[in-house]
């Protein structure tokens, strides 16, 4: 059986911590970090990476274009 697994990369310094990606993620992958970036924003990160399926919803709603999305099809044993 095949399954989509995904990963996101957040450009930490351009992220403003608006939370729209957290809200848009259907599998609750993203959270805001405890730490802040150079501008003082709690930036988005993959808190639950196993759940990412690479749907790109986070990147779609991101106003600052700071999310890059990868997706790969894997065969599950």
């Amino acid at each position: 059986m095949a399954k989509m697994i995904g990963a996101i990369e957040v450009d930490i310094e351009t992220c403003k911590g608006c939370s729209l990606c957290v809200e848009a993620c259907p599998t609750n992958v993203i959270a805001l970090a405890e730490e802040v970036n150079g501008k003082g924003y709690n930036y988005a990160y993959m808190a639950n990476p196993e759940a990412c399926n690479g749907c790109t919803n986070c990147a779609q709603v991101c106003p600052d274009s700071c999310i890059t999305v990868y997706r790969k099809k894997v065969e599950m044993a």
């Binding site: 990963a7 690479g54 790109t56 990147a59 999310i67 890059t68 999305v69 990868y70 997706r71 790969k72």
Partner: peptide
């Protein structure tokens, strides 16, 4: 994660 983050798997970028 590093295995997924390869150019051939890129689906959305700026």
């Amino acid at each position: 994660l590093e295995d997924i983050k390869k150019p051939e798997n890129l689906v959305h970028k700026k």
